[in-house]
């Protein structure tokens, strides 16, 4: 069947099979490989996109059900020349290591910022708890979130302190 939808502001159509997910169609039919596929079971959030204003796991949405929908993916938030504030904060705080969880987390945090700008640190943790990250231990992600929401998370180290570590060295470095 043919599905027509709006992706990142542009009208798109794709030939899809009935069993294909929105994630598959975005990645393989529309060439948008930002959203990832770490579990395909709705458990990891790496495939997160915004569908008609709701944050969804695109691996759990049938492409056919996205007929007429408006979809925003990580590619639609910003690019190298004008990154979204969430994207800039992720880079600045080292919140992307391998980066596999990152597209989903960036979409989830941007959605939270838009819909719940007053989210408390605990709200942020709850809102992002569906996005697994195996590399960072979440500290840098929570610091990035605190920056874009303009408030600190007492459990994530102070905002603006990039590393939160105390070093006992004297700072002299030679090869």
């Amino acid at each position: 069947m043919i599905v027509s939808l709006t992706v990142n502001g542009e009208p798109r159509t794709a030939e899809v099979a009935g069993f294909e997910s929105l994630l598959w169609v975005l990645r393989e039919r529309l060439d948008l490989r930002g959203a990832k596929d770490a579990c395909l079971q709705g458990e990891c959030g790496s495939c997160s996109v915004v569908l008609d204003g709701d944050l969804v796991c695109s691996c759990l949405v049938l492409a056919a059900d996205a007929e007429g929908a408006e979809v925003t993916t990580v590619e639609g938030l910003g690019d190298a020349t004008s990154p979204h504030p969430v994207q800039s904060a992720f880079v600045a705080h080292g919140a992307a290591q391998c980066g596999y969880c990152t597209p989903g987390l960036v979409v989830a945090l941007a959605h939270l910022r838009e819909n719940r700008p007053d989210a408390s640190p605990d709200d942020v943790r709850e809102a992002l708890a569906g996005n697994l990250c195996r590399c960072t231990g979440y500290g840098a992600i929570l610091r990035a979130a605190a920056e874009v929401l303009g408030r600190g998370d007492p459990g994530a180290g102070p905002v603006g302190d990039p590393d939160g570590t105390r070093s006992q060295g004297d700072g002299e470095v030679t090869p």
Binding site: E126, N131, Y138, G139, I141, L142, Q168, G169, D170
Partner: peptide, 17 residues
Amino acid sequence: LLPTCLDAPEVEAVLVE
């Protein structure tokens, strides 16, 4: 089960150089 950000503890680090 993997740790989520609700499981993330506060981390304090001292680097001995």
